[in-house]
């Protein structure tokens, strides 16, 4: 969906930024660094980093945007567990995108 939405809105995104924190996702993901920092803090349950990550994201996208970011992380914590919990993984059609991100499908 990231590639599809980026293409649809003509906003370039470097998919490798999903995996590599040193890579800027590009102009298509405004506040990409801040979004990634909060995402990481939540998923990794980093109590030390979370407050600053949230505050920086508020500065970058406003309070509603920062709350939405946390909500989206929550949603995908749910969806990731759901699909793994029913034993359904990525199909071979995901191989190209996986390569663009720089990961190998299991």
């Amino acid at each position: 969906m990231l590639r599809a939405s980026a293409d649809a809105t003509d906003q370039p995104v470097d998919l490798a930024a999903i995996r590599d924190e040193s890579i800027d996702p590009g102009p298509g993901v405004r506040a990409g660094r801040e979004l990634r920092n909060l995402t990481d803090a939540i998923v990794l349950r980093d109590t030390d980093e979370r407050p600053a990550a949230f505050a920086e994201l508020v500065d970058a996208v406003g309070p509603a945007g920062a709350v939405r970011a946390a909500a989206v992380v929550g949603n995908f914590e749910m969806m990731n567990r759901l699909m793994d919990g029913i034993g359904v993984g990525a199909g071979p059609e995901m191989a190209t995108i996986a390569a663009d991100i720089g990961v190998t499908l299991p």
Binding site: L2, A6, V13, E77
Partner: peptide, 16 residues
């Protein structure tokens, strides 16, 4: 509250 691209970036990072 965020653009679709921003939302999907978060989704992808979470999943990774």
């Amino acid at each position: 509250d965020l653009t679709r691209v921003q939302i999907e970036f978060i989704a992808a990072r979470t999943s990774l």
